[in-house]
Design a protein around this nucleic acid. Structure first.
Lengths: 254, 254
DNA sequence: CGCGGCATTGAAATTACTCAAGGGGAGTGG
DNA sequence: CCACTCCCCTTGAGTAATTTCAATGCCGCG
C-alpha cells in the first residue's frame, strides 16, 4: 500500500516539467501543487537565435521557462555599449523580473534557437493564491538568480581579467552540471568571444588575449563552441571559485 | 458612516510601518493584511556603526527592515578586496536573500548606527500562507532590489569612472527622495570615499580624483557628508541616468 | 567568388592603479 | 592644553592593466 503510493509519488516527480523540477529544489511540492504548476505553462513556444524576445522598456510581457537552448539577458546603454547581465540555461526563468515590475528593465535574446514554455503574470498570481507555497518557491528561485547576479557584480568590480573570465566560465560549468549538461571536464558553450566580453565587462580583443593566457597556463580551453577545463582543481584555486552560492541545498519548506 | 470608515483606513495607512509602506507600493494591502504584516516585525533592535550584523557564510539568520540609518551589503574576496553590493536606506530589506537561501552569501555592516525591526523566516513563511498577496508583494520588493543590483552591474561593467560615480550617486539620491530624505538639490551621505570606491569598483585614490573632476565640471559636490547636485539636469545627461528601474508605479494587485 | 561574422595579433593610447607623502580633524591619554 | 594616533581626504609620479585602432586569416554561406 505504502509502496504503491510511493511509486505514484515517484511518477509525479519523474514527469516533472522544468519548472517543477526547479521549484522542487526549494519547496517539497505536493502532487496537487505540481498539477497547478503544470497548468501554469502549457503553451510551448520556440524562438530563433538572435532575435530579441523581450526589449528593454517593453511592458505587459509574459515570463518563460527555458526548456532547451541558451538565452542572454542584457542591458544597452545609449552609446551602444552592452552589458550582459546573465546567460540562461535550461530550467532557468526568462523575464520573471520584467513581469513583476511590469516594465522590462532589460532585453532578452536567444543565443541559440530555444524552446520555452510561457507563463502569464495573471496565472502566476492566481497560482500564488491557490498554493502559497508556490509563491515561496518562486521567491527562492528569484533569490538564487539574484545571488548569481551579485557574484557577477563582484567579479566585474573586483577581479582582474583572468580571474574574472575563469570564474565566469566555472560558474556556467557548475550550473550546467546541475542540469546534466556539463561536467568537471567541460561543456558545450555557444557563446562568441564578443558575448563573453559583454558579460565580463572587457573588450573582445582583451578577452581573446586572456583566453589565450588561460590556455597557455593549462587552466582551460575555450574553442570551437566548447569549454574544456584542462585542470579543474588548479582553475578553481586560480579563480577563487566558491560554488556555495549556487548550491541547491534541498527544500526548506517540507 | 463611510467617512468614518475611510478615516479609519487612513489611520491604518498613516501608522504604516516601514514594511507595510514598502509593500503597499506593490500590492494594495487590506487592513487585515497590514495587521498580519505589523505582527511580523514587532521586535525593534539597534546596531552600532561598523560592527557586522551578518557575516558571509552565516546561516539561520533573521532578516530586518531598516528603520533609520544606512547599511551596507558587501562581499569579501579571499585576498581582502571588498565589493559593496548595495547600500540600504530606511525602508529597505536587510538580508532577505540570506534568509531565503539559508546561508548568507554576503555580509552586512551598519554604515551609521541603525534601527531595525526583525523578521524571522518562520514568521514570514507563516504570513505567506495566511495572506498569499503578501508573498507576491515581497517578491515584487525583491525584484526591485534585484533591478538595482543589475543596474549596478551595468555601471561597473560598462561605464567609465565619471559616469559610474555620477550614476551611482544619482541613484542613491532618487531612492532617498522616495523616502523623503533627499531632493534634486542633494542629500546627506554618510559614506566615506573608501566605501564609495568599494561600491563602484575603483580605488579610493581614483574616486577622489574623479569626484574632483565632477566638482570642477559643475556637476556635483561630494563633501563633508553631503552630496550636492550642482546641476541636476546636466548630471543626469552626463550619467545617462534613466530612473525608470526605480519607479514604483503603484499596485499591480488591486 | 565575395561577403560577413568571428578569432587573432601588434602597436599606440588611455584609463586606472599603486606607491608615496602630506594635511586636517576628531578623539584620547598624559 | 598638548602630543599622539587614527581615519579620511588630497595630490604627484610612475606603473600596470585594458582599450582602441588596425590589419590579417579563417570559415560558412549565398
Amino acid at each position: 500500500m505504502i509502496k504503491s503510493w510511493m511509486a505514484l509519488k515517484m511518477d509525479v516527480h519523474l514527469e516533472n516539467s522544468p519548472l517543477s523540477r526547479k521549484l522542487g529544489v526549494f519547496v517539497a511540492l505536493s502532487q496537487s501543487e505540481v498539477t497547478v504548476l503544470n497548468g501554469l505553462h502549457q503553451r510551448r513556444r520556440t524562438f530563433v537565435a538572435g532575435r530579441d524576445l523581450v526589449d528593454q522598456g517593453q511592458s505587459d510581457q509574459a515570463a518563460y521557462i527555458l526548456c532547451s537552448g541558451w538565452a542572454c539577458s542584457y542591458k544597452l546603454l545609449s552609446d551602444g555599449q552592452r552589458q550582459v547581465v546573465d546567460f540562461q540555461i535550461p530550467g532557468d526563468f526568462l523575464g520573471l523580473r520584467s513581469v513583476l515590475l511590469r516594465v522590462s528593465d532589460h532585453s532578452i535574446v536567444p543565443v541559440t534557437d530555444i524552446e520555452v514554455t510561457e507563463v502569464h503574470a495573471a496565472d502566476l498570481l492566481d497560482a500564488f493564491a491557490k498554493t502559497p507555497r508556490l509563491a515561496a518557491a518562486v521567491l527562492w528561485a528569484a533569490s538564487r538568480d539574484e545571488a548569481i547576479v551579485v557574484e557577477h557584480l563582484v567579479g566585474v568590480g573586483r577581479r582582474d581579467a583572468g580571474e574574472r573570465l575563469a570564474h565566469f566560465l566555472l560558474e556556467l560549468g557548475t550550473r550546467l552540471t546541475l542540469v546534466g549538461m556539463g561536467s568537471k571536464a567541460g561543456y558545450a558553450c555557444p557563446l562568441s568571444q564578443y558575448m563573453l566580453a559583454d558579460a565580463v565587462g572587457l573588450s573582445a580583443v582583451h578577452v581573446n588575449r586572456v583566453l589565450r593566457q588561460l590556455r597557455e597556463k593549462g587552466l582551460l580551453t575555450f574553442r570551437d563552441g566548447h569549454v574544456t577545463f584542462d585542470n579543474y582543481a588548479k582553475l578553481i584555486e586560480f579563480a577563487q571559485f566558491d560554488r556555495s552560492y549556487l548550491d541547491e541545498i534541498g527544500p526548506l519548506l517540507k
